[in-house]
Amino acid sequence: MTKSSFKRIDGRKSNELRPITAKVGIIPNADGSALFAFGNTIAIAAVYGPRQLHPQHKQNPTKAFLRCNYDLMSFSVSERKKPGPNRRAQEISKVTEWALAPVLDLDSFPGTVIDVQIYILQADAGTRTAGINAASMALAHAGIPMKDLVCSVAAGKQDKELIVDLTKEEEDFKEGEGATDFAIAKVANSDEYTLLQLDGKIQPNIVSDVLELVNGACKEIYEAQKKALKEVVKK
């Protein structure tokens, strides 16, 4: 699947992640919070809730409502981003909800809302996946019952080479088949997927190779998440 001869722009191997930073408990006001970074991409997340949902007519009497809000800080990208969620951010907020909800025990908190706030401090591709990793840790930190953590990473292609955790420079690759960005999230300890989002060009018959690559990367992400969560418990 991956040739060892292939060198990436930053010298990584095809299946090599950027250095991971994972911290839990970074925002004292929040019920749960975390930071997750893939190299230069830094995401922070805070969880508030379960708490009363207002207005009342939005409440679901059978389960909690998971409400995610993802956004880039205005200075996190080269050209200043106008503050406030645009359509891209709204879409990412939604796919983040869909990526996280399947592992949460929402049925135990009817009528409430669990708010997950995700902000990107510094962007170098992979912001939605870093955000999901941070949010997953923050939810665990908040003590929301979860059947497992969610781990997320983007896989992709540079021309025909499969690679994991792309930088912005790799995402902008134009030669051959160009770059493909395939953001995936999975349940940490089973081969079950909760986020699939792709832009680019990828053959249906190599998708299973991509999943394998992502499974390997997610093991490392999971270990980093677990370690950070354990550290905060020790304190």
């Binding site: 796919v95 079950e192 997927y193 909760t194 299973s208």
Partner: peptide, 15 residues
């Protein structure tokens, strides 16, 4: 070629 993909919904997909 798959040029785009998006999962919509709070569910899990198996391999």
């Amino acid at each position: 070629m798959i040029n785009s993909c998006q999962k919509n919904g709070e569910i899990i997909l198996t391999t």
